[in-house]
Every structure is written in structure tokens, then in C-alpha cells.
């Protein structure tokens, strides 16, 4: 069964993590294509700035902003309830919000690990589960889950982030087949190093030595080179074409190929690269 091309205009798009990075650019791209917007982020000031720019450029477009902390289960449930009440039918749900965590497994606390899992995996899982009635209310809707390069490979120092992004990928790929029966498309996105604020807003393992934090943050930031507006364009094109999987930037495509050619052996190469660069710790990625 093939779904027809996704049409953006006049349908409601729900987008998490809309205040910066790929999410901000997705918001602009969706507005441009005529989608009514429900924008969600934890950073209210930045979110309002993004919404303001959209309202100026597209005065006739309905733009709704909701500030919510996706780490909080009841906040996510309240958020989904509100969206359901205001928009009984939505065309597109993009689970984009994510948080990074730097540090080896023994350097991060259980609370930090859980926060990453809650934002990166539980929140998309809850949002999708609760919004499925709205997604299936009108035919031809679409779901996007933004996993990561680290949903393809799991380098050292990325235990929580990789775990959350592998989990999201598993959920997303399973839903791809399930939701097809309802006429809903699913795209799983694996961005490589995109120039976003994820390095600045990354959590740092509570037992990562002080002197390692800043160099690692800078190293991380330097790896993020792909422009987020281009990444967002690729995602929206993949949605229109109903692509199952999208890898963005060579920094996602090369490791993906490596992992498929050497399902076990690639870990040694990844380890050699990351240990040489970051002394094995703390490099966090989108």
C-alpha cells in the first residue's frame, strides 16, 4: 500500500522542540507550506520569538504555542489532552525535541539517565499514543520521529542518548507498519552533526570531571556543522514523499553504511575515533 503525497496546506502540524535548531527551521518550513501550527518547547521566550517571526511573515496562519517540559510525564499528558481538545484532527506530528547527556555510564546519575529517556523516548511515545485518534481522524496523516545518528551506532560516552534514540527508532519502525493500516505514514529521521543548540543545552554527567566539560562541549559543537534549515527542508521533503527513513548529512550516512557492512566490527572503528578525540568521554550529539 502506498500513501499519496503528504499535503501540508490547511492541516495542523504539531511540533515539539520548536524554539531552536532543526525544530525552529521545521516551524518556518511548515508555516511556509501553509500548515496550521502547534509549537511546543520548554523555552518559552525563544518559542514566542519563533512564533512572532512566523506571524509576521504569514499573517493569516494560525500559530499556537505551548510551553511544556517533556521530561515531566503529567506535563506531556496534559499537553496531549489540550491538543486533542483544540485539534480533534491533526495532519502531522513531529517528535523533534531531544536532550543530550555527556559522560560515561558510570559518570551519569540514574536521574540524568532517566531524564534523557523521558524527553527523548517516553515523551514521543506518549504523544504518539495519545494523539493517534487525532492522527487517524482524517486520512493521510503523518508521523515523524527524530532519532539520531546515535540511533544507528552507539559510541562510548553516549549510553543514555543512544539508548533513548535506539528505543525511539524501534518504536518508530514498528509503528511504520502498524499505522500504514490506518493510512498514516511514518518517517524516522537520523540527523548527523547538525548545527543546533543541543551542545549548549546538553546535560553533563554529574560525575564528569570539571576540566573535561568545556573542551568536550567545544569539541561537540565543532562537530555540528550541517545547517539546520537544510536539515529541516530534507525532513519536510521526506514527509511529502512518505519516506520511511531519512539520514541527514554525511556524518550520518557514513556511519550507517559502516554499521551495516560491519554490524559488530564497526564499534572498534567508532571507539578508535571517539577515544582519540574525546578521551572516551562526554561527547554528546544530536
Amino acid at each position: 500500500m502506498r500513501l499519496p503525497e503528504y499535503r501540508f496546506a490547511g492541516r495542523t502540524a504539531v511540533l515539539t522542540g520548536a524554539a531552536s535548531g532543526i525544530g525552529e527551521q521545521l516551524a518556518y518550513g511548515l508555516a511556509f507550506r501553509g500548515s496550521d501550527l502547534v509549537l511546543i518547547d520548554v523555552d518559552g521566550d525563544r518559542l514566542e520569538a519563533v512564533a512572532g517571526r512566523i506571524r509576521t511573515a504569514h499573517p493569516a496562519l494560525p500559530v499556537r504555542t505551548i510551553v511544556a517540559d517533556l521530561a515531566d510525564r503529567s506535563a506531556v499528558e496534559g499537553l496531549a489532552d489540550r491538543i486533542l481538545a483544540e485539534h480533534p484532527a491533526i495532519g502531522l506530528l513531529i517528535n523533534n525535541a531531544g536532550v543530550a547527556l555527556g559522560g560515561r555510564f558510570d559518570q551519569v546519575s540514574i536521574e540524568q539517565f532517566e531524564t534523557v529517556m523521558n524527553v527523548n523516548f517516553r515523551a514521543p511515545m506518549l504523544m504518539t499514543h495519545m494523539l493517534i485518534p487525532a492522527l487517524t481522524a482524517s486520512p493521510g496523516s503523518h508521523l515523524v520521529n527524530v532519532s539520531s545518528l546515535f540511533g544507528l551506532i552507539a559510541p562510548p560516552g553516549q549510553s543514555a542518548y543512544s539508548a533513548s534514540k535506539f528505543a525511539l527508532r524501534g518504536l518508530s519502525e514498528s509503528l511504520r507498519s502498524e499505522l500504514l493500516d490506518n493510512g498514516v505514514g511514518v518517517t524516522t529521521v537520523h540527523p548527523g552533526g547538525i548545527r543546533t543548540r543541543i551542545a549548549e543545552s546538553a546535560l553533563v554527567g554529574s560525575r564528569v570531571p570539571e576540566e573535561e566539560i568545556e573542551p568536550n562541549r567545544q569539541l561537540f559543537a565543532a562537530l555540528l556543522s550541517y545547517p539546520p534549515d537544510k536539515a529541516a527542508e530534507q525532513i519536510l521533503r521526506a514527509v511529502a514523499k512518505r519516506k520511511a527513513r531519512l539520514l541527514i548529512a554525511a556524518s550520518a550516512k557514513a556511519p550507517d553504511l559502516l554499521a551495516r557492512l560491519m554490524p559488530v566490527g564497526h564499534a572498534r572503528i567508532v571507539r578508535a575515533l571517539t577515544v582519540a578525540r574525546g578521551a572516551g568521554t562526554a561527547v554528546v550529539r544530536q
Binding site: A9, G10, R33, A57, A60, L61
Partner: peptide, 17 residues
């Protein structure tokens, strides 16, 4: 998209259906 690139200062609207 090309129109917006040619008129970066412009406002725009895409009508549905």
C-alpha cells in the same frame, strides 16, 4: 519557495485545497 527567495521581505500564504 522561489518567489520567497526573490522577495525575502515578502509575506506569504499558501491556501489549502
Amino acid at each position: 519557495a522561489a518567489a520567497q527567495a526573490a522577495f525575502p521581505h515578502a509575506r506569504s500564504h499558501m491556501f489549502a485545497r
